[in-house]
Structure formats: C-alpha cells, structure tokens
C-alpha cells in the first residue's frame, strides 16, 4: 500500500462520503434546493468545529510565545547576546523551558490541521466531477453504503455552478472585456474575508523580523487564495468563504474571552455605568470593535471602563510587567 492509498483510506474517502451523506440528507431526503452548496457549508462548519480545540490550542500557544517576547527577561537576553546568535538561541530556549513554554507547540496543531484542510479541499474538488474521467475516478472513493441515486450531484447553488469558476452575470456589462463574463463575487469576498481573518488571527509583532513577514503574508495570502477562488470551481470558493467567516467569528470570540478579569472595584463601577447588553449585542459590539481596530478607526467615544480587548490587553501586559518586576527585585 503506497502513501496515496493510505491518504485515501484514512482522510479523503471518509471526507468524500461524509459530504455525500450530508448531500443525500439535505437534497433527496429534505428536498432542499442547492443541496451541494449547503452540504459544503455544513461540512466545512462541522470540520471547523471538530478542529476547534486544535485551533484554540494553537492560538493560545502563539499568544503565550508572543507575550514572552515582551518579558523583561527575554529583552535582557536579547540585548546581552546581540552579537552571539548561537548563545542567544540557547538562552532563549532556556527561558522558554523555565517559563514552561514550548515554542513549537503552536506548530503541532497547525500540522495536524493540514491533512484536514487538504482532505476537505480534495473531497470537494472530486465530488464536483463533471466529465467522464473525473467521475470514474470519483467512483473509486464512494462507499457502497452511499446511495448511487445521488450521482451525479446537482452542482447548482444560488446563481453558481459549483463545478465551474463563479461569475455573477450582469447583462449590462456583457460587452466589456474581462468582466463581460460576470463579476467574480465569491473571489472578491474570499479576498476580503481572508484579509480580515489573517489580520484577526495574526497577533502584531512590533519591530520584530517576523513583523515584515506577517505583513507580507497578510497581503499575499488573501490574494493567492482569491486567485484560487477566481480560477477554480465555485465549490472551493464557497469553502474558502465559509471557512474564513468561521475563523473570523472564532477570532472575534477568542479576542473577547481572552481578556483577563479586571479588578473587582473597577468591574463593579463599570457595571453601574453601562447598561446591560444581551449576549448577541455584546458580541456585535465586540465584532464592531475588532473591525474598527483592524481598519485603524479610533473609537467614537472613550467610554469609561471600556471592556475592549485592547484595554484588557494593556492591563494584562501591565500586570505581567508588575509581576515580572516584583520577581526581578
């Protein structure tokens, strides 16, 4: 058995068949229109939920590693061994060990999530087989328990054929070159959501060498994914959109809940000053705040005792600094 066969048995086939079961349930059983588009949405969310613990762990790990980079002890080591790269690395590793941080811990969940992403990607592409060779190839992956009555899958979803690159037709623009075939709405949404997602999930790295790389990734990655969405099947673009929206929602929630508890007195005062918000309103406020921060727009009014993640972060940093100072003295 070669590695391709192992990949198919363990990752690709279960994903393809899960997608088909969902399609069968939503389409032929419930009679919903655009069942394959809905199946992609449901399946993407399902996969995202399953891999959520890994994602959270990875983000926590990244945050811890980055918090350490502001630690006075870390800065001291950097200053001290500025000219000796090897020694610097040794001392940094010692500090990581001392603080109980594994700098590679953030990578492991990402590595584990790669097969999931690639498997899902392959499953969607294969399921959209629209000519003989791909369909014959696709048939090799289908379990006998999947009803063959669902083949070929109905690839229509809203205005798009999920097996073809997506374009929203606008008759008035038909004579104009390039956009005459239609506007690639999904590809545009993919670029925007990929940009937002990258910005929200990549913590700022001021002054570091990694900052330049992060900045470039933040620009090139959305464009690259947007290019995929523009060129390849609309089903894939739909997957990117759902995946990005999920990641944005997740990042917003994580930013909200990562805030450390504020001092009791301040909290009480804030509660007295602010009207009570429902969970949804609070989430919306948090999202708005994150977006404004992202776009560099200052808050309209500096409400006293703001519960923004920014101020929480500042407080967290300050308290961390105080603790470190106390330890140092």
């Amino acid at each position: 058995m070669n590695i391709g066969e192992i990949w198919d048995i363990l990752i690709l086939n279960p994903m393809i068949n899960a997608l088909l079961y969902i399609y069968d349930f939503l389409g032929p059983t419930l009679g919903l229109a655009g069942a394959f588009g809905l199946a992609i949405i449901v399946f993407t969310i399902l996969i995202k939920v399953i891999s959520l613990p890994l994602t959270i762990k990875q983000q926590h790990s990244t945050q811890r590693t980055q918090a350490l980079q502001k630690d006075p002890e870390f800065l001291k080591i950097q200053k001290k061994y500025k000219g000796d790269r090897q020694k610097l690395q040794e001392e940094q590793m010692k500090l990581y060990k001392k603080k109980g941080i594994n700098p590679l811990a953030g990578c492991l969940p990402v590595l584990i999530s790669f097969p999931i992403i690639f498997g899902l990607y392959g499953a969607i592409i294969r399921s959209l087989a629209d000519s003989p060779s791909p369909l014959l190839e696709f048939s090799k992956h289908i379990y006998s328990s999947v009803s063959s009555t669902i083949i070929p899958l109905d690839s229509q979803f809203l205005w798009m054929d999920l097996g073809q690159p997506e374009r929203f037709p606008i008759p008035a623009l038909e004579s104009i070159p390039i956009i005459g075939d239609g506007i690639p709405i999904l590809a545009i949404i993919v670029v925007i959501t990929s940009y937002l997602q990258t910005k929200l999930t990549t913590p700022p790295q001021p002054g570091s060498q990694g900052a330049g790389m992060s900045q470039m990734m933040g620009i090139y990655m959305p464009l690259l994914i947007g290019y995929f969405a523009y060129t390849f099947a609309a089903g894939l673009a739909l997957y990117f959109v759902v995946s990005n929206l999920f990641a944005i929602g997740q990042a917003v929630l994580m930013n909200r809940f990562k805030s450390e508890p504020e001092p009791a007195g301040k909290k009480k005062k804030k509660a007295e000053e602010q009207p009570k918000e429902s969970g949804v309103l609070s989430l919306l406020a948090s999202t708005q705040e994150s977006m404004m921060k992202l776009l560099g727009i200052p808050p309209k009014s500096t409400t006293q005792g703001s519960n923004s993640s920014e101020s929480a972060k500042d407080q967290s940093e300050q308290s961390g600094k105080k603790k470190a100072d106390a330890k140092g003295s």
Partner: peptide
C-alpha cells in the same frame, strides 16, 4: 525567516494545494 522568503513559501503552498487537488486540476477529462 526573511520576508523575501514569503513569495517562495506561497508558491510552495500553491503547489501543495494543486497536488492535493489531484483530479481537480487534471487536464485529462475523458
């Protein structure tokens, strides 16, 4: 990692995605 390595890295990712897509990017349709 230097910022200059970002573009080769992205090309690598694109290649990986293409490889994983398998049939999706194959030119033989029949």
């Amino acid at each position: 990692m230097k910022p200059k390595l970002v573009i080769p890295l992205l090309i690598g990712i694109a290649f990986l995605l293409s490889a994983c897509a398998g049939v999706g990017f194959r030119s033989d349709t029949s």
